[in-house]
Amino acid sequence: MAVNPITCPRCQSTDVVKNGKIHNGRQNFKCKGGNRQFVQNPTKKVIGQETRDVSDKLLLERLSLAGIARVTWGSEQWLQTYVNAKYSSVPKTVAAWSKKRGKLTIQCDQMWSFVGNKKNKHLLWLAVDVNTGKIVGVCVGKRSREGAQGLWESLPAVYRQCVVCYTDFWSASERVIPQSRHRAVGKHSGNTNQIERFNCTLRQSVSRLVRDTLSFSKQLDNHIGAIWYFVPHYNLSLLL
């Protein structure tokens, strides 16, 4: 009985030689033409670009990683590794765009979230441009002057130079934002409605920020990465 020759999965060449064994003891082969190494009938699933693209989109929806893995028929282990790499590479600054000096107004607010367990709270500081609706400042920190300073420094330079900033009455903001451009107001004034509405949008879009969720972050880096991954997509959606 004729034995089917071993062929390279890349170039279909039969000029193949044995090349040791892989970690589980299976025979490894090497294509002499293209130096491609492979095993026959591999059990490890190769994740295609289409699955990666779908995963990227689903990360912007209120789905846990386990839910995304079920939708894409991928493994949670692969998805977690993929997400870790993606979140670590996300720029942690607001993208610069042309903005003329003039009357610039922002609203600032904070929302609580937690990482690892509910005792480990982290405060998300946010700033939104009243005229464009874009998120112009983001900082994850504590409810302290350090957190307010982080939000202020995350603003594009043109905003730090001439913006009028509406916040709640938290004293940390008063100590960081220049007095002449700071307006502390209550909820009844309506001058923080826009940022409070965005807080709701963010919680509905990033599963790890949903109240009483089980999909919370185990690592602070991923928590911050998930937020920064969402912000540019949200800002871009305002232009469509």
Score class of each variant (00 low, 15 high):
89 S>V: 08
133 G>T: 10
38 F>G: 12
170 W>H: 10
145 R>D: 00
128 V>S: 05
1 M>N: 12
100 K>F: 12
136 V>A: 10
82 Y>N: 10
90 V>S: 07
55 S>Y: 00
68 I>H: 03
14 T>I: 10
166 Y>F: 15
231 V>W: 01
43 T>Q: 08
28 N>D: 03
174 E>K: 12
39 V>G: 06
30 K>H: 02
208 R>V: 13
176 V>M: 03
4 N>S: 11
236 L>E: 13
61 E>T: 15
76 E>H: 13
73 W>N: 13
66 A>F: 09
116 G>E: 01
173 S>R: 01
107 Q>T: 14
127 A>D: 00
45 K>L: 13
119 K>V: 05
231 V>L: 01
89 S>W: 01
104 L>H: 05
171 S>D: 02
148 A>W: 06
12 Q>P: 01
84 N>W: 00
92 K>I: 10
80 Q>H: 13
55 S>P: 02
12 Q>K: 15
223 H>C: 05
52 R>S: 11
190 G>R: 06
156 P>Q: 04
136 V>L: 07
30 K>Y: 02
91 P>N: 05
193 N>H: 12
115 V>Q: 03
8 C>Q: 04
7 T>G: 01
240 L>Q: 14
104 L>A: 12
19 N>I: 06
219 Q>F: 11
175 R>L: 15
221 D>L: 04
150 G>Q: 03
124 L>R: 05
221 D>C: 09
150 G>L: 03
19 N>P: 04
57 K>C: 04
218 K>G: 06
22 I>Y: 04
85 A>V: 10
223 H>S: 06
40 Q>W: 04
85 A>H: 06
205 S>R: 11
166 Y>Q: 03
69 A>K: 01
193 N>W: 08
59 L>M: 11
134 K>C: 14
49 Q>M: 06
206 V>E: 00
30 K>R: 10
230 F>Q: 07
139 C>I: 07
188 H>A: 14
109 D>S: 13
95 A>G: 08
129 D>I: 10
114 F>V: 11
233 H>S: 08
155 L>Q: 02
7 T>S: 06
38 F>M: 08
181 R>V: 15
220 L>M: 06
18 K>M: 10
108 C>R: 00
235 N>C: 11
75 S>D: 03
108 C>M: 11
128 V>I: 15
200 C>V: 14
63 L>T: 08
222 N>K: 07
9 P>K: 08
159 Y>N: 09
107 Q>E: 13
227 I>C: 02
76 E>V: 09
11 C>M: 04
41 N>G: 05
154 S>R: 03
212 D>C: 14
